[in-house]
Protein backbone atom coordinates (compact mmCIF):
# COMPACT_ATOMS: atom_id res chain seq x y z
CA UNK A 1 0.00 0.00 0.00
CA UNK A 2 1.16 3.54 -0.60
CA UNK A 3 -0.05 6.71 1.04
CA UNK A 4 0.19 10.08 -0.64
CA UNK A 5 3.45 9.62 -2.53
CA UNK A 6 4.57 12.26 -5.00
CA UNK A 7 7.61 12.47 -7.26
CA UNK A 8 8.61 13.33 -10.81
CA UNK A 9 11.39 11.57 -12.69
CA UNK A 10 13.13 13.32 -15.58
CA UNK A 11 14.08 11.88 -18.93
CA UNK A 12 17.41 10.07 -18.87
CA UNK A 13 17.52 9.74 -15.09
CA UNK A 14 18.61 6.58 -13.32
CA UNK A 15 16.35 6.46 -10.32
CA UNK A 16 16.25 3.90 -7.53
CA UNK A 17 13.27 3.25 -5.30
CA UNK A 18 14.52 1.91 -1.97
CA UNK A 19 12.78 0.67 1.11
CA UNK A 20 12.39 -2.29 3.45
CA UNK A 21 10.01 -5.15 2.64
CA UNK A 22 6.47 -3.87 2.53
CA UNK A 23 7.54 -0.24 2.06
CA UNK A 24 5.37 0.09 -1.06
CA UNK A 25 8.05 -0.25 -3.78
CA UNK A 26 6.32 -2.92 -5.81
CA UNK A 27 2.93 -1.27 -5.41
CA UNK A 28 4.46 1.96 -6.71
CA UNK A 29 5.82 0.15 -9.76
CA UNK A 30 2.51 -1.62 -10.37
CA UNK A 31 0.79 1.75 -10.25
CA UNK A 32 3.32 3.28 -12.65
CA UNK A 33 2.62 0.65 -15.30
CA UNK A 34 -1.14 0.82 -14.88
CA UNK A 35 -1.64 -2.55 -13.18
CA UNK A 36 -2.81 -1.15 -9.85
CA UNK A 37 -5.25 1.73 -10.13
CA UNK A 38 -4.52 4.46 -7.55
CA UNK A 39 -7.47 5.21 -5.25
CA UNK A 40 -6.76 8.93 -5.44
CA UNK A 41 -4.37 11.39 -7.02
CA UNK A 42 -2.95 11.89 -10.47
CA UNK A 43 -0.32 9.91 -12.28
CA UNK A 44 1.35 10.56 -15.61
CA UNK A 45 3.96 8.37 -17.24
CA UNK A 46 5.60 9.70 -20.39
CA UNK A 47 2.74 12.11 -20.93
CA UNK A 48 0.06 9.42 -20.62
CA UNK A 49 -2.53 9.61 -17.89
CA UNK A 50 -2.48 6.37 -15.89
CA UNK A 51 -4.38 4.06 -15.64
CA UNK A 52 -6.65 5.44 -18.41
CA UNK A 53 -3.95 5.38 -21.11
CA UNK A 54 -1.84 2.63 -19.61
CA UNK A 55 -1.94 0.45 -22.70
CA UNK A 56 -0.64 3.20 -24.99
CA UNK A 57 2.02 4.04 -22.41
CA UNK A 58 3.18 0.43 -22.10
CA UNK A 59 3.95 0.49 -25.82
CA UNK A 60 6.82 2.86 -24.97
CA UNK A 61 8.25 1.30 -21.83
CA UNK A 62 9.92 -1.96 -20.87
CA UNK A 63 9.23 -3.85 -17.66
CA UNK A 64 11.52 -6.42 -16.04
CA UNK A 65 9.67 -8.42 -13.37
CA UNK A 66 11.07 -9.39 -9.99
CA UNK A 67 11.13 -13.09 -10.84
CA UNK A 68 11.78 -14.23 -14.38
CA UNK A 69 8.66 -15.19 -16.28
CA UNK A 70 10.35 -16.42 -19.41
CA UNK A 71 8.45 -19.10 -21.32
CA UNK A 72 10.10 -22.46 -20.52
CA UNK A 73 8.48 -24.05 -23.59
CA UNK A 74 10.33 -21.70 -25.92
CA UNK A 75 13.94 -21.16 -26.92
CA UNK A 76 15.72 -17.87 -26.26
CA UNK A 77 14.85 -16.52 -29.72
CA UNK A 78 11.27 -17.73 -29.52
CA UNK A 79 10.86 -15.99 -26.19
CA UNK A 80 11.89 -12.71 -27.76
CA UNK A 81 9.78 -13.27 -30.88
CA UNK A 82 6.59 -14.16 -28.99
CA UNK A 83 7.07 -11.24 -26.63
CA UNK A 84 7.49 -8.85 -29.55
CA UNK A 85 4.08 -9.88 -30.83
CA UNK A 86 2.50 -8.69 -27.59
CA UNK A 87 3.62 -5.22 -28.65
CA UNK A 88 1.99 -5.59 -32.05
CA UNK A 89 5.38 -5.78 -33.79
CA UNK A 90 5.41 -7.67 -37.07
CA UNK A 91 7.41 -10.84 -37.51
CA UNK A 92 9.86 -8.92 -39.68
CA UNK A 93 10.43 -6.14 -37.16
CA UNK A 94 10.99 -8.68 -34.41
CA UNK A 95 13.41 -10.76 -36.48
CA UNK A 96 15.39 -7.64 -37.29
CA UNK A 97 15.58 -6.66 -33.62
CA UNK A 98 16.55 -10.04 -32.16
CA UNK A 99 20.27 -10.13 -33.17
CA UNK A 100 20.88 -6.74 -31.48
CA UNK A 101 19.22 -7.94 -28.30
CA UNK A 102 21.14 -11.22 -28.24
CA UNK A 103 24.36 -9.26 -28.62
CA UNK A 104 23.42 -6.87 -25.84
CA UNK A 105 22.70 -9.80 -23.54
CA UNK A 106 25.80 -11.70 -24.72
CA UNK A 107 23.56 -14.63 -25.58
CA UNK A 108 24.42 -14.96 -29.28
CA UNK A 109 25.51 -18.57 -28.92
CA UNK A 110 22.46 -19.44 -26.84
CA UNK A 111 19.91 -18.32 -29.43
CA UNK A 112 18.31 -21.73 -29.76
CA UNK A 113 18.88 -22.90 -26.18
CA UNK A 114 15.94 -23.73 -23.98
CA UNK A 115 15.33 -21.55 -20.95
CA UNK A 116 16.14 -24.44 -18.60
CA UNK A 117 19.64 -24.57 -20.12
CA UNK A 118 20.41 -20.97 -19.14
CA UNK A 119 22.16 -19.92 -15.93
CA UNK A 120 20.51 -17.50 -13.53
CA UNK A 121 22.49 -14.56 -14.90
CA UNK A 122 21.66 -15.45 -18.50
CA UNK A 123 17.95 -15.64 -17.67
CA UNK A 124 18.12 -12.22 -16.03
CA UNK A 125 19.92 -10.72 -19.03
CA UNK A 126 17.33 -12.26 -21.34
CA UNK A 127 14.54 -10.82 -19.19
CA UNK A 128 16.15 -7.40 -19.47
CA UNK A 129 16.65 -7.44 -23.23
CA UNK A 130 13.18 -8.93 -23.71
CA UNK A 131 11.86 -5.73 -22.14
CA UNK A 132 13.80 -3.78 -24.80
CA UNK A 133 12.15 -5.49 -27.76
CA UNK A 134 9.92 -2.47 -28.41
CA UNK A 135 12.76 0.08 -28.15
CA UNK A 136 11.36 1.63 -24.97
CA UNK A 137 12.26 5.08 -23.67
CA UNK A 138 11.77 4.02 -20.06
CA UNK A 139 12.89 0.77 -18.44
CA UNK A 140 11.41 -0.33 -15.12
CA UNK A 141 13.10 -3.10 -13.14
CA UNK A 142 11.78 -4.66 -9.95
CA UNK A 143 14.71 -5.91 -7.84
CA UNK A 144 16.76 -6.93 -10.87
CA UNK A 145 19.70 -8.52 -8.99
CA UNK A 146 18.02 -10.11 -5.99
CA UNK A 147 19.40 -13.57 -5.29
CA UNK A 148 22.23 -13.39 -7.82
CA UNK A 149 25.91 -13.87 -7.07
CA UNK A 150 28.34 -10.90 -7.05
CA UNK A 151 29.86 -11.53 -10.50
CA UNK A 152 26.43 -11.64 -12.11
CA UNK A 153 25.37 -8.49 -10.29
CA UNK A 154 28.48 -6.62 -11.53
CA UNK A 155 27.73 -7.83 -15.02
CA UNK A 156 24.11 -6.64 -14.87
CA UNK A 157 25.17 -3.26 -13.49
CA UNK A 158 27.42 -2.84 -16.50
CA UNK A 159 24.54 -3.65 -18.81
CA UNK A 160 22.20 -1.20 -17.07
CA UNK A 161 24.81 1.57 -17.05
CA UNK A 162 25.35 1.00 -20.75
CA UNK A 163 21.61 1.26 -21.40
CA UNK A 164 21.40 4.53 -19.52
CA UNK A 165 24.28 5.94 -21.55
CA UNK A 166 22.33 5.07 -24.67
CA UNK A 167 19.63 7.44 -23.42
CA UNK A 168 17.23 5.15 -21.60
CA UNK A 169 15.46 6.40 -18.48
CA UNK A 170 15.70 3.72 -15.80
CA UNK A 171 13.72 3.14 -12.63
CA UNK A 172 14.61 0.23 -10.40
CA UNK A 173 13.72 -1.01 -6.97
CA UNK A 174 16.34 -2.68 -4.85
CA UNK A 175 17.25 -3.36 -1.29
CA UNK A 176 20.94 -3.59 -2.04
CA UNK A 177 22.37 -0.28 -0.92
CA UNK A 178 25.65 -0.75 -2.80
CA UNK A 179 23.67 -1.27 -5.98
CA UNK A 180 21.65 1.89 -5.45
CA UNK A 181 24.73 3.93 -4.48
CA UNK A 182 26.66 2.82 -7.55
CA UNK A 183 23.96 3.00 -10.18
CA UNK A 184 21.41 5.59 -9.23
CA UNK A 185 21.73 9.33 -9.65
CA UNK A 186 18.67 9.66 -7.54
CA UNK A 187 17.19 7.73 -4.64
CA UNK A 188 13.56 7.71 -3.58
CA UNK A 189 13.54 6.16 -0.13
CA UNK A 190 10.17 4.76 0.91
CA UNK A 191 8.78 3.25 4.07
CA UNK A 192 5.27 2.45 5.24
CA UNK A 193 3.92 3.64 1.89
CA UNK A 194 5.45 7.11 2.16
CA UNK A 195 8.43 8.82 0.57
CA UNK A 196 11.03 9.51 3.28
CA UNK A 197 13.70 11.06 1.08
CA UNK A 198 14.22 11.95 -2.56
CA UNK A 199 17.79 13.00 -3.38
CA UNK A 200 21.01 11.91 -5.03
CA UNK A 201 22.82 9.23 -2.99
CA UNK A 202 25.65 11.66 -2.17
CA UNK A 203 23.29 14.40 -1.02
CA UNK A 204 21.25 11.89 0.93
CA UNK A 205 24.34 10.70 2.81
CA UNK A 206 25.57 14.27 3.35
CA UNK A 207 22.22 15.57 4.60
CA UNK A 208 20.90 12.63 6.58
CA UNK A 209 23.82 11.32 8.54
CA UNK A 210 27.17 12.16 10.12
CA UNK A 211 30.12 11.87 7.75
CA UNK A 212 31.88 8.94 9.45
CA UNK A 213 30.94 5.67 11.08
CA UNK A 214 32.93 3.55 13.51
CA UNK A 215 31.71 0.00 13.94
CA UNK A 216 33.15 -2.00 16.88
CA UNK A 217 32.52 -5.56 17.96
CA UNK A 218 34.29 -8.26 19.97
CA UNK A 219 34.50 -9.80 23.42
CA UNK A 220 36.05 -6.76 25.16
CA UNK A 221 33.40 -4.38 23.92
CA UNK A 222 31.90 -3.55 27.31
CA UNK A 223 35.30 -3.08 28.98
CA UNK A 224 36.52 -0.80 26.29
CA UNK A 225 33.44 1.33 26.15
CA UNK A 226 33.67 1.93 29.91
CA UNK A 227 37.17 3.35 29.52
CA UNK A 228 36.92 4.82 26.02
CA UNK A 229 37.19 8.61 25.59
CA UNK A 230 33.78 8.94 23.94
CA UNK A 231 33.42 12.63 23.09
CA UNK A 232 30.26 14.61 23.76
CA UNK A 233 27.57 14.78 21.08
CA UNK A 234 28.64 11.55 19.43
CA UNK A 235 25.70 9.45 18.41
CA UNK A 236 26.10 5.82 19.45
CA UNK A 237 23.87 2.82 18.79
CA UNK A 238 24.07 -0.79 19.84
CA UNK A 239 22.86 -3.21 17.19
CA UNK A 240 23.11 -6.85 18.05
CA UNK A 241 26.70 -7.40 19.17
CA UNK A 242 28.14 -4.25 17.61
CA UNK A 243 28.42 -0.63 18.65
CA UNK A 244 28.08 2.06 15.97
CA UNK A 245 29.45 5.57 16.50
CA UNK A 246 28.47 8.35 14.13
CA UNK A 247 30.39 11.62 13.91
CA UNK A 248 32.48 14.01 11.85
CA UNK A 249 35.81 13.03 13.49
CA UNK A 250 36.19 9.80 15.43
CA UNK A 251 40.02 9.53 15.29
CA UNK A 252 40.45 9.70 19.08
CA UNK A 253 38.17 6.68 19.50
CA UNK A 254 39.97 4.79 16.79
CA UNK A 255 43.32 5.46 18.46
CA UNK A 256 42.06 4.04 21.74
CA UNK A 257 41.02 0.81 20.02
CA UNK A 258 44.52 -0.28 19.04
CA UNK A 259 45.37 -1.37 22.60
CA UNK A 260 42.49 -3.86 22.65
CA UNK A 261 43.25 -7.22 21.08
CA UNK A 262 39.77 -8.61 21.64
CA UNK A 263 38.09 -6.01 19.49
CA UNK A 264 37.50 -5.66 15.79
CA UNK A 265 36.54 -2.39 14.23
CA UNK A 266 35.87 -0.62 10.96
CA UNK A 267 36.22 3.13 10.55
CA UNK A 268 34.70 4.36 7.30
CA UNK A 269 32.78 7.15 5.60
CA UNK A 270 29.04 6.83 6.09
CA UNK A 271 27.23 5.07 3.25
CA UNK A 272 23.72 4.63 1.99
CA UNK A 273 23.14 1.63 4.21
CA UNK A 274 23.73 3.77 7.30
CA UNK A 275 21.22 6.31 6.00
CA UNK A 276 18.76 3.56 5.17
CA UNK A 277 18.96 2.07 8.66
CA UNK A 278 18.73 5.47 10.29
CA UNK A 279 15.66 6.53 8.34
CA UNK A 280 13.74 3.26 8.23
CA UNK A 281 14.67 1.93 11.65
CA UNK A 282 16.31 -1.29 12.61
CA UNK A 283 13.44 -3.56 13.47
CA UNK A 284 13.19 -6.77 11.46
CA UNK A 285 10.57 -6.78 8.70
CA UNK A 286 9.15 -10.11 7.74
CA UNK A 287 6.24 -8.78 5.75
Amino acid sequence: MVDGISFAIGRGEFCGILGPNGAGKTTTLKMLVGNAPPSAGKLWVMGFSIPAQARAMRRKIGIVPQSDNLDPDFSVVENLAVYGRYFGLSGREVRARIPELLKLAALEDKADARISQLSGGMKRRLSIVRALINRPELLILDEPTTGLDPQIRQNLWKLLRHLQKEGLTIILTTHYMDEAERLCQRIILMDHGRVLADQSPQALIRDSIESHVLEVHGSDLDHWVGEAPVPERIRCERIGESLFFYGERLDCLVASLDEWNGLNYAYRPANLEDVFLKLTGRELRDG
Binding site: N35, R55, R58, P65, D71
Partner: peptide, 14 residues
Protein backbone atom coordinates in the same frame (compact mmCIF):
# COMPACT_ATOMS: atom_id res chain seq x y z
CA UNK B 1 3.12 -20.82 -12.07
CA UNK B 2 4.75 -19.57 -15.27
CA UNK B 3 3.51 -15.99 -14.74
CA UNK B 4 3.02 -15.74 -18.49
CA UNK B 5 0.08 -13.41 -17.97
CA UNK B 6 2.23 -11.00 -15.95
CA UNK B 7 4.53 -10.77 -18.94
CA UNK B 8 1.58 -10.00 -21.20
CA UNK B 9 0.26 -7.39 -18.78
CA UNK B 10 3.68 -5.73 -18.82
CA UNK B 11 3.25 -5.36 -22.60
CA UNK B 12 0.46 -3.28 -24.14
CA UNK B 13 -2.14 -5.98 -23.41
CA UNK B 14 -4.70 -5.74 -20.66
Amino acid sequence: VLRTWDGMLAAPLD
